[in-house]
Amino acid sequence: MFSLSQRIQTLSNQALTFACFIFVFVIATSWLQLIQQHAFMTPSSIDNIKTSINLRTSRYYGSMNGKPKENSKILFDLNTDLSPLFNWNTKQVFVYLTGEYEGQLRPQTKSEVTYWDKIITKGDNAKLQLKNVRSKYAVWDLEEVFVGRELTFKLKWNIQPWIGPLIYGEANGNKTITITSGKPANVKNEKKSSA
C-alpha cells in the first residue's frame, strides 16, 4: 500500500509547502519592518560638489575614432544613515550616487549616470559620513560637450535580500549643479596671473 516512492513524494511535497510558507513569512515581515522604520524616507545630504573635466581619447572612455571626449569627475561630501534598510532579510545594500540631465543639442534625450557606488553588507557600516570623496567613475555623455550641463544628483539604494524581491528606493535630498571644466580653467588662470 505505502511504497517508498509514495513516502518520498509526500515528504517532499510537505517540505516544499512548508518552505513556501517560511519564504512568504520572511518577505512579509521584512517589508513591514522597512515601512515601520521609514526606510523609504531616509534623509541624505550631498554637499560641496566640485566638478572637473578630463579629455580622453580611448574607446574605453567614450572616444569615437580618436576624437577627444570630455570625461567628468567630481569630489563630494555625503551624509546619510542607511541603517533602517537593514533587517533579517537584507543580504547587502547597494548605494549609488547618480546624476540626471538633459541633452544640450537634443533636449529630448534624458540621461542618468552613476558617479559613485558602494556595497554595504553590515548594518553597522550603514552610516555614511564621507568628506571630499572622489567619484569612482569618469563619466562621459553621448554628445561631445559635457561642460555647462545641469546635473541633478540623487542618492539611490537597492536592497539585495537573502530571499525574495529586489527592493529599490531613493534617499530624500538632491542637489543640482552645473558642470564646469574645473582644472583646465584654473590652469589657464594661473598662467595668466604668472605672466
Binding site: F94, Y96, R106, Q108, T109, K110, S111, E112, V113, T114, D117, Y137, V139, D141, L142
Partner: peptide
Amino acid sequence: HRVMREHHSEK
C-alpha cells in the same frame, strides 16, 4: 550585470 548609465529619448 548592473546598469550604471542609461540614455533614452522621449520621442
